[in-house]
Amino acid sequence: MMHRKVVLRVVSKFLIPPILLFALYVQFHGDFGPGGGFQAGVIFGSGFILYAILFGVETVKRVLPPWSTRLLLVVGVLTYGLTGVAGLILGGNYLDYNVLAHDPLHGQHYGILIVELGVGITVAASMITIFNVFAGQSGGD
């Protein structure tokens, strides 16, 4: 498997860094153009999945061990939830971003950025986890 598909392997090596970079661009540029946490998470996840398909799941597991994706899954959801709690502590309603900064507009900006980050982390982590579990099955048989 490792000796065949030279073209695929070389091309994907060129492609994967731009894919991950593009995912980050989509993540943080979602306020201005199309994009946001959901899309960025999926693109980020698919970069890792492409790598896993071509170089084997074990290679990816060396970079991202299973416990780390599971941790990221929880971290993403908690980022979202705790942003809401932060608004609550600072004197607003749950998930009220206006109080996060002195200026409501800035508060909204921070709030959306953090929340989208939480969404992105959750989606990316869940996509990688799901793929790893599916691929790990065939490895076990």
């Binding site: 306020d31 946001g36 946490g37 507009l105 909204q108």
Partner: peptide, 12 residues
């Protein structure tokens, strides 16, 4: 304060 209405509705 965001140009993309979809993002502001989605996240705010």
């Amino acid at each position: 304060g965001m140009p993309n209405i979809v993002t502001s509705v989605l996240a705010s």
